[in-house]
Design a protein around this nucleic acid. Structure first.
Lengths: 205, 205
DNA sequence: TAGATTGTTAATCGATTAACAATC
DNA sequence: TAGATTGTTAATCGATTAACAATC
């Protein structure tokens, strides 16, 4: 099972998981590739092909058992357990993430939030108290954190990335509108609303 | 110039624009496809191929004139002018977007923010005052808004989408962790941090 | 059994890369 | 001119789709 799955397939698995979790909430027990496909605007053939990389997950004639597929997808994505993640930057985005209730059943939990601004350090956000950025490295090491979310201005982000990696972080979700370099083996994902808006505006007028 | 450009290429143009804008800020006048490629982890050949869809934008022997390429990309992406966009939902994400200083030089400006919660209506966020969701449709019509950002809980988002489209919105950036249906011709982009985090966690452990 | 839907192969389609003539 | 880099063609690579035997 699963010898170097293409990245593009991995990128679709969270969407499958999100869609099928919704079907479960609606009371379904089984979902066919066609149903899922309609929900996601993805062809049924592609969904079957993607899933088949991880074994025979469906039942011919019936579809995919939802409970089973959910647990299988979580297993594949390593979200069986909850990852403790840290957030760097206690601005609007960082605060929003720290307060966000939706992470926990997707496999994540913000366990600390850091900022460099003395005005913010010590402030309470949701269940957390903003920590001094200076404590970040020690925190990562002693809590064995692997995932960090960067929610700070672009100018400072490359420096912080370097510190994060040095401390042992191996996966970064970056909200700064800038492309960042990380050493081989450190995964980075980017979220930049302006990029999405520009994709949209291309099609307008 | 430009007969039905593949979506995947359009998706890269904002990245080119972001990278080259940075090079401008650093004082460069020209950028070669190799420089850009190194900055973005994209092959030089691909960058040249992508850009060539829109004419001969470079100078052989020199590269791309930065000032010219920026204006050309803005022209292609329709971000020459500033789009007035609206934000639905005045929670952390909505507030963050309303206060975000980075939109204006990427071609966007939040011109109104709406919420359904009486506690939030009337509150000041940045330069804006939160409006009643009930005023949304009238606002869209009379201001000819085309782009909306959805930053509300998943449960309510399909209803709001329908209202948005009815009022004339043709492009939506959706922060709710759910796949939404919109009629043909209405573009939707999705941002769901959990999806990105799950892509990251796949590679861990 | 009949109907439905998977898993998988082969065919198609599209995107990326390599290579190089054109040319600044 | 010599060196550099584009624009573009052809070759390669990879992803998607169509189709259907297997089977629940």
């Amino acid at each position: 099972m699963a010898n170097q799955i293409p990245r593009i397939i991995i990128g679709r698995l969270p969407l499958y998981l999100r869609a099928i979790t919704r079907l479960k909430k609606e009371g379904h027990d089984y979902a066919s590739s066609h149903e899922l496909g309609k929900l996601l605007d993805i062809s049924a053939a592609q969904i079957r092909k993607d899933l088949s990389h991880f074994g025979e997950l469906g039942k011919r004639g019936k579809g995919y058992e939802i409970e089973f597929l959910i647990s299988k997808l979580n297993q594949i994505l390593n979200t069986d357990d909850v990852w403790r993640i840290i957030v760097i930057g206690a601005g609007d985005i960082g605060s929003g993430l720290a307060r966000y209730k939706g992470f926990i059943n997707r496999g994540f939990k913000v366990s600390a939030i850091f900022d460099i601004d003395p005005q913010k350090i010590g402030k309470k956000i949701g269940d957390l108290v903003v920590k001094d950025l200076g404590e970040m490295e020690a925190y990562i090491t002693s809590n064995q954190i692997q995932i960090a979310v960067l929610a700070i201005p672009a100018e400072n982000s490359q420096d912080v990335i370097d510190d994060l990696v040095k401390a042992g972080i191996t996966a970064i979700l970056n909200y700064a509108p800038i492309y960042l370099k990380a050493p081989e083996g450190v995964q980075i994902e980017h979220i930049d609303p302006s990029v999405h808006l520009q994709k949209l505006s291309y099609f307008l007028k």
